[in-house]
Design a protein around this nucleic acid. Structure first.
Lengths: 143, 143
DNA sequence: CATTATTCCTACTGCACTGGTAGTATATTA
DNA sequence: TAATATACTACCAGTGCAGTAGGAATAATG
């Protein structure tokens, strides 16, 4: 139950785009430097975020990436799901056909409950919520 | 963020031991059959649960495993932690020395919040809670 | 038009972990 | 001594993670 670096980097990159929202495209190179991530690795992550529809790209000089929607319209779950997928715990929680005893399975209920509370947090928070909080605390977006 | 089969199997095995608590040792072979798990694989899982102190073994004929403590004394987090570890999301949440910006990091606060709600569920529930619920619902312990 | 800056695309790699299988040793009971 | 358990160790194939690398396509600029 650990997060991949992909997800962590993606979250930080998207938070940085959110902070920069409305100020034109931001380059992978810049984000990579600020977040101390390999440029080439981040490129792949950005590509995935783009094909998920979370961000838009502008090619060529002075290009870069921008959020596809304003920060208040993007939930943390949107970012999370790109690499971690919608299933947080076990397959059978999302798909009750996965196991024929799903209907009255207690173990499944444990994992379903955990999945529920996790998604609660992710869906209740937007990028804007996070950056507002950051401004209050003078925090940054590491990890 | 998926659970390993180890954790899922361990949870089911321990729940079965909890149901059987006070009735003498239960054999890997029996649990494996009931839960439809490979005997040899389950053996390794039981060994890990034993060295974590959750269960006790009796070797030889008529041997098997029993819970080291009564079901109301064992929390789901005890079982969970054997294979998933106490860290649910990222290292820096448990160890703030892991990253030098931990102190005021917003991304970290996201993962910390998720970790918190997950551990809340796992620590608030005992094996007894689960099997009581199972009796009410006539559920079983699959998945 | 050439240069430069940027995304885009694809391939490759080393490593750790997962999900097992297998064989044998050791202890206990009958 | 025979049967039944756990205990211990080794092994293996597949998958995903966390990158590295190189070059092609595209767009702005001088």
């Amino acid at each position: 139950m650990k997060l991949s670096t992909r997800t962590r980097y993606a979250m930080r990159a998207v938070l940085e785009l959110a902070e920069n929202f409305g100020k034109g495209p931001l380059q992978t190179r810049v984000i990579a430097k600020n977040q101390d991530i390999s440029v080439k690795y981040l490129e792949q992550i950005m590509a995935a975020l783009k094909s998920a529809g979370l961000i838009r790209s502008q090619r060529g000089a002075k290009g870069g990436y921008i959020l596809a929607n304003p920060p208040e319209k993007i939930k943390l779950s949107d970012v999370f799901d790109v690499f971690e997928g919608p299933v947080v715990t076990v397959e059978c929680v999302a798909n009750d056909k996965y196991c024929n005893r799903s209907g009255n399975c207690v173990a499944r209920q444990i994992w379903a409950e955990i999945q529920r509370v996790v998604r609660n947090v992710l869906q209740a928070t937007t990028l804007k919520d996070v950056i507002e909080k950051a401004k209050d605390n003078k925090s940054d977006y590491q990890i």
